[in-house]
Design a protein around this nucleic acid. Structure first.
Length: 275
DNA sequence: ACGCGTGCCTGTTGGC
DNA sequence: TGCCAACAGGCACGCG
């Protein structure tokens, strides 16, 4: 399930394959893969991909031609993948859209595959992005914000786990990195966010940044679906301290980890080490 | 205005 | 062994 480190990895591994490639055509196999606010996908033909970047969990392909500047925004949600193949590759079972690209070398086909169909493509200019509520209200990048900024955004009565997963508060954190960061910070996921002291928020801020940075350095976490743009798995799942580890001994104190549901999400923590 | 619960979607898993 | 409910979870949405 691609969160910030996974999307960052996809962006980095995808760019060398598609930079300076021109989009010749597209094939949309599932209409609902297109976000309702999107420009018609036909507007993408003839555009050149100039860059790939990330904002929160969103992957951005920067497009340009002589007159316009557009972005193809990809939200992979749970099971979305972006993969490149030679142009002879046929659509896969879960291919929702593919693009034929021509570049300096051999032509390639860029696939948007998505088993659970939660993912979306949004072809947007600046004005569409500004109309898009999710984009407009997306919180700051965790690797670019300081501890004071985080403290200001955590004035909510909700539990800290749910608050960390709220994309309006901070962008890019999902279930994996919320659990892992709270364990590293020694903070219970059940704590009301606004009950955290400045020192605790400072710890949490450091924990969020170190967990995300470490995961990026390991090319993200592959539970089952996630792969980078070359189809390779990440390895941060081997470093999980809590996520998916309910009932197993805490790596710090040895007591079995507690598994609960919080905001409808599986949540694993140590009730000894996390206060 | 805010917090909380539910539905969406389909492949995988685990219990009987 | 086979069946089927439960589960995975990011986000929109509706309710109180």
């Amino acid at each position: 399930m691609p969160e910030l480190p996974e999307v960052e990895t996809i962006s980095r591994t995808l760019l060398p394959h598609i930079r300076d490639h021109r989009i010749l055509s597209f094939t949309l196999l599932r209409e609902s893969a297109l976000h309702p606010l999107s420009l018609p996908l036909a507007d993408i033909t003839g555009k050149t991909i100039t860059n790939a970047s990330r904002r929160g969990k969103l992957l951005l392909l920067h497009l340009a031609d002589a007159d316009t500047s557009l972005k193809l925004v990809v939200h992979l949600r749970m099971t979305g993948r972006l993969l490149t193949f030679p142009k002879t590759e046929s659509p896969h079972k879960h291919t929702r859209c593919f693009f034929d690209l021509e570049g300096p070398h051999s032509p390639i086909r860029l696939f948007f595959d998505d088993a659970r169909t939660f993912g979306k493509l949004l072809l947007a200019d600046q004005s569409i992005l500004e109309q898009w509520e999710f984009w407009r209200t997306l919180g700051p990048e965790p690797l670019e914000m300081d501890s004071n900024a985080l403290a200001k955004r955590l004035h909510t009565s909700r539990n800290i786990k749910t608050a960390l997963m709220d994309q309006k508060i901070i962008a890019g954190i999902g279930n994996i990195y919320a659990d892992e960061a709270l364990f590293l910070a020694g903070i219970s996921p059940l704590r009301p966010a606004k009950s955290l002291t400045d020192a605790e928020i400072d710890n949490l801020h450091n924990a969020i940044q170190s967990v995300l940075r470490l995961s990026i350095s390991q090319c993200g976490s592959s539970i089952r679906d996630y792969r980078d743009a070359n189809g390779n798995a990440g390895s941060f799942q081997n470093s999980f301290k809590t996520y998916g580890q309910g009932g197993k001994p805490c790596k710090n104190c040895g007591k079995p980890l507690t598994k609960i549901r919080l905001g409808g999400r599986a949540t694993v923590y140590c009730d000894v080490c996390q206060k």
